[in-house]
């Protein structure tokens, strides 16, 4: 699944560690989501969407 997490994080000049702390997950998890190696759970996706004040579908794109 493609996503705009890196772009959104970059716009705010946040490090992966900053975002990880905001989301309450590990930095590795943020990195894995950004690189598309891990798709977050629905609760985490909602948390990301709330943090960036965007709808989920504006951040995550179904690649299939």
């Amino acid at each position: 699944m493609k996503n705009r997490l890196k772009e959104l994080r970059g716009d705010r000049t946040w490090s992966q560690g900053d975002l990880a702390r905001e989301l309450g997950v590990s930095r590795q998890t943020v990195n894995a989501i950004e690189t598309g190696k891990y798709d977050p759970s629905l609760p985490l996706a909602f948390k990301i969407a709330r943090l960036f004040r965007s709808p989920i579908e504006a951040i995550f794109e179904d690649g299939t």
Partner: peptide, 20 residues
């Protein structure tokens, strides 16, 4: 539109929640 909140200013070396 409300501004996006800045991340907390804790030290970057601090371990994130759920860190392995």
């Amino acid at each position: 539109m409300n501004p996006i909140p800045s991340p907390s200013t804790r030290e970057s070396a601090e371990r994130c929640a759920g860190e392995y």
